[in-house]
Design a binder for these strands. Structure first.
Length: 336
DNA sequence: CGGCTTTGACCAGCGC
DNA sequence: GCGCTGGTCAAAGCCG
């Protein structure tokens, strides 16, 4: 994929960022947390306003940017997400690290250097910056053949004639990982996906599912897996950029702009039945799953007539209501 | 019947 | 070289 801001080229646009080694991503939620690794994965996290995040104070995580600015560059090649560049209030902060920093070991020092996630949501990116798209059309039998055919051209993956350099690693598309508290594995995100595989994950009872965007010529993929350490957390990893707009019913609202690439099928947040939270909002706003570290200002409870009223978690939703209104003006009622 | 999921097999990369 | 693992393919089956 050549368009858009894949890879490190986005550094400038989004300010300084650091990447920790080999994409080792560690989450520490106090209960042990979990970690997963993705080579070339950069990561950034939403930290609680004044919280201590897994032993790392949020204000010690140096460079922050906003999610929206990131989405703007990475997830929204059309630039529509610019719309979302509302002041992220105190809610969202980003830590994106570059390779330069902590590029040594693959995870040995991860505990030290890897940013730690908030319990409720986080996003991580990878800067693959590569093509990666052309290889999805191989037939089973064609694969061996393909290796032969490519021998003349660029390097075949077998690294036939060179003494194995690390740099020859196959480039990857930009990746974004969302940690979402959700009962549902496959979160609606406005795009249509076709499942093309499922694999058991090592050390995890939960399988990992592989999806591909069904839109022709859109090579975006996504992986969905459930954290084995925290089964209420779904890890959704997007790879690549959509070459089209979301077919979601949210079109015309701002909601889909804020969504990770890909939600359809779910009603807008204000139409969700009581006690049911929109997974994406849950993810982004960390609403219904307050962490022990969370220090929220005391706010009055939402009115009973609010569709999302009625759960113990409601107060946290209400806390972020102003932000929600900023982000979803057309879907959120006027005033709670 | 088309679109989607399931599932076993295959392939590539990597570490030992 | 071998085994492990992640990622992908594609036939078969399911479903509206």
């Amino acid at each position: 994929m050549s368009s858009g801001g894949g890879g490190g080229g986005d550094q400038g646009r989004h300010g300084v960022y650091h990447q920790h080694g080999h994409g080792q991503l560690t989450r520490n939620d106090g209960a042990g947390g979990y970690e997963f690794s993705n080579d070339d994965m950069e990561s950034f996290f939403f930290n609680q306003p004044e919280g201590v995040v897994g032993g790392v104070r949020a204000d010690e995580i140096e460079p922050y940017s906003s999610l929206t600015s990131y989405l703007q560059g990475f997830l929204d090649p059309t630039g529509l997400a610019r719309h979302l560049d509302v002041p992220a209030k105190h809610e969202l902060s980003v830590d994106v690290r570059t390779h330069d920093q902590d590029s040594q070991g693959t995870g040995s020092a991860a505990g030290e250097s890897a940013p730690l996630l908030t319990p409720n949501s986080s996003v991580s990116f990878s800067s693959g910056g590569g093509d990666g798209e052309g290889k999805s059309h191989r037939s089973k039998k064609g694969r061996a053949q393909e290796a032969d055919n490519q021998e003349d051209g660029e390097s075949s993956k077998k690294a036939n004639n060179k003494p194995k350099k690390k740099a020859e690693k196959r480039p990857r598309l930009p990746r974004v990982s969302f940690l979402t508290k959700s009962e549902v594995d496959h979160l609606e995100d406005g795009y249509r996906w076709r499942k093309y595989g499922q694999k058991a994950v090592k050390n995890s009872p939960y399988p990992r599912s592989y999806y591909r965007c069904t839109t022709p010529k859109c090579g975006v993929k996504k992986r969905v897996e459930r954290s084995y350490q925290d089964p209420s957390t779904v890890i959704t990893t997007y790879e690549g950029q959509h070459t089209h707009h979301s077919p979601a019913s949210f079109r015309g609202t701002s909601a889909h702009l804020f969504m990770p690439p890909g939600v359809h099928g779910l009603p807008p947040p204000h139409l969700m039945p009581p006690g049911v939270f929109h997974p994406e909002l849950m993810s982004m706003m960390r609403m219904p799953y307050p962490s022990p570290n969370m220090h929220l200002p005391s706010v009055p409870p939402p009115p009973h007539h609010h569709p999302m009223a009625g759960t113990p978690l409601q107060q946290h939703h209400f806390t972020d209501y102003a932000l929600l209104q900023d982000l979803f003006p057309s879907t959120m009622p006027n005033n709670p």
